[in-house]
């Protein structure tokens, strides 16, 4: 029994998951059952992949000990460049691949500059936040380009599943989340990511190519952010240069709520999803329970601080539980 308690208390996403359940129950009661209705779930789950994908990328990067503040800007830059290519009659698939390659390049620059000049990634990606946003506005020419009408948007936006509960984008999100979770916990690269963030000197001394591991995570983070931006633009039907503004901090909040340590080495993909879902639940729940929506940021902020305190308390408690061999 003690052993099980310890195992669960050590799960970094536990605090977030408990909060999620509490909030869902609370909103369900306060909204007289509307919150968990199929109609509302459709809306909520339809939006989740966009923020969830960004949170996963940011989480993996944080586990390996680095930050990415540029994800919000890349979220806008990627679909904007795709839209411009589409308007120049580039086929959809090619435009998307080139768009993802641009994201990969941004991620590579983030990582390369951070490691080559040994500066905090907080600074590098803060710079990239401004630069990528500026580029987005510049290439849009001030007027958001129109998307051609014959795009395979159904690949991302069509409702599927029982009762049309989820969008296609949710399937992409689920598949990517599973892939990333498997990468982290089942592969040697996942081991290296955790080791690089957990204790960089040890990872290097044991022969792990830490710089390559980190650059890989920077690239992943950028590509997931760009892909998420594309999903949102295809849902909205128009590439606005302002989308994703402030998303970088929400993604960090989601990661932290989900139990990712700011110091690196600790975190899970499930935690990132729990964090992202919590933020969506608050956003949606406040509206349904007729609370002034301006309280949204207040709630997310309070929750972030609370989750971190709860997590460190849980971890200390888990550590205090001594399990002997035969328990």
């Amino acid at each position: 029994m003690k052993r099980f308690l310890k195992i669960y208390l050590e799960k970094p996403e536990l605090a977030g998951a408990v909060l999620l359940v509490v909030l869902v129950v609370l909103f369900q009661l306060r909204s007289n059952g509307v919150f968990l209705s199929a109609e509302n779930l459709r809306g909520m789950l339809g939006l989740l992949p966009e923020m969830g994908l960004v949170a996963i990328g940011v989480t993996v990067l944080m586990i390996c000990g680095e930050f990415d503040l540029s994800v919000g800007s890349v979220f806008a830059l990627m679909p904007m460049s795709v839209a411009i290519m589409l308007n120049a009659d580039v086929p959809f698939a090619v435009a998307v691949l080139v768009g993802l390659a641009i994201c990969a390049l941004v991620g590579f620059i983030n990582g390369f500059v951070t490691l080559r000049f040994a500066i905090p990634s907080f600074i590098t990606t803060l710079g990239m936040l401004f630069m990528a946003r500026s580029m987005t506005v510049v290439i849009s020419g001030g007027f958001p380009p129109l998307l051609p009408a014959d795009l395979p948007t159904w690949l991302f936006t069509r409702y599927v599943g029982p009762g049309g509960l989820i969008r296609m984008s949710f399937l992409w999100f689920g598949a990517i989340a599973l892939l990333m979770a498997a990468l982290l916990s089942l592969t040697n690269l996942g081991n290296w990511i955790k080791a690089s963030g957990g204790f960089l000197e040890a990872a290097g001394a044991m022969g792990i190519p830490v710089n390559r591991v980190k650059i890989t995570c920077f690239i992943l983070s950028s590509m997931l952010a760009g892909f998420a931006g594309l999903v949102q633009v295809l849902r909205l039907g128009s590439p606005l240069p302002s989308i994703g503004d402030g998303l970088e901090l929400q993604a960090v909040a989601a990661a932290v709520i989900g139990g990712t340590a700011l110091t690196g080495g600790v975190g899970t993909v499930l935690g990132a999803i729990v964090g992202a879902l919590l933020i969506r639940v608050i956003d949606n729940g406040l509206v349904l329970t007729q609370v002034d929506a301006n309280w949204f940021k207040f709630a997310v902020g309070g929750l972030t601080i609370f989750a971190v305190i709860a997590n460190s308390w849980l971890r200390r408690t888990a550590r205090g539980i001594r399990v002997d061999q035969h328990a």
Binding site: L186, T187, N188, L189, G190, N191, W192, K194, A195, G197, G198, F199, A202, A203, M206, G207, I208, A261, G265, V266
Partner: peptide, 27 residues
Amino acid sequence: VPTMSIARNLFIGREPLQWSLFGIGLL
């Protein structure tokens, strides 16, 4: 690495793999 298990620490950088592609594979 303090945040990792004993088993994972023992094999850091020299993990036994079930299969791999370009050096990345399943533990």
